[in-house]
């Protein structure tokens, strides 16, 4: 059955197929270049530039997000640092205050002791003075008494002078010894 038909390709020279035709090369060159030019200008340029723009904007957004995250972390860290510093400061102030308080109490104590001592000393001095004054007065009084006594003796017994004298002396001596 197959033999009835001419299956060969020889009727139309096959060389036709692999021989480029000048006319079509001409049209292909002209039309392709026009298409290339128009598409480059009106299609590829806006498309590629917007794609690039979009990519850079996405990239920027991502970078900025990263940066914000980093900044947040830094902020958090600095906050914590500030808090720790504040705590330290508080502790230091408390410590200082208690030290000052202790010092104040100590000082007050010392002052009170000093004052007490001073007052005791003063009292002692006053007592001593009073004592001395009292002694002096006692001496004076005694002397006055002796003089009075002597006067009275003198008024009564003027005759026995030497004996009297001896007596007076002995009295006086006794008084002094006292």
């Amino acid at each position: 059955m197959l033999t009835q038909y001419d299956v060969s390709l020889t009727d139309d020279p096959p060389m036709n197929l692999v021989t480029p035709e000048l006319g079509l090369i001409f049209w292909q060159t002209v039309i392709f270049l026009i298409v290339l030019f128009l598409l480059a200008k009106f299609a590829w340029r806006p498309i590629l530039s917007s794609l690039k723009e979009r990519e850079t904007s996405i990239e920027n957004a991502l970078r900025m997000a990263d940066q914000a995250k980093l900044e947040m972390q830094q902020l958090k860290a600095s906050n914590e640092k500030l808090l720790a510093e504040a705590r330290l400061e508080r502790d230091r102030i408390l410590k200082e205050a208690s030290a000052v308080a202790t010092q104040h109490i100590e000082e007050a104590k010392n002052k009170a002791t000093e004052e007490g001592n001073r007052m005791i000393t003063q009292a002692r001095e006053a007592i001593q003075q009073e004592k001395n004054m009292a002694l002096a007065e006692v001496k004076n009084t005694a002397a006055q008494l002796s003089i009075d006594v002597a006067e009275r003796i003198l008024r009564r017994e003027l005759t026995d002078a030497p004996a009297q004298q001896q007596l007076v002396d002995s009295y006086l001596k006794e008084v002094k010894l006292n």
Binding site: E21, L22, G23, L24, F26, W27, Q28, I31, F32, I34, V35, L38, L39, F42, A43, W44, R45, P46, I47, S50, L51
Partner: peptide, 29 residues
């Protein structure tokens, strides 16, 4: 022979199609 053969004509048509399609895509952008 610079005739607008079947292939040359198809070339024109497909070029017009490409231009319309991609310029509209470009305008969309």
């Amino acid at each position: 022979d610079f005739s607008l053969t079947k292939n040359a004509f198809a070339l024109l048509l497909s070029s017009v199609l490409m231009l319309i399609l991609f310029i509209s895509v470009g305008n969309g952008f």
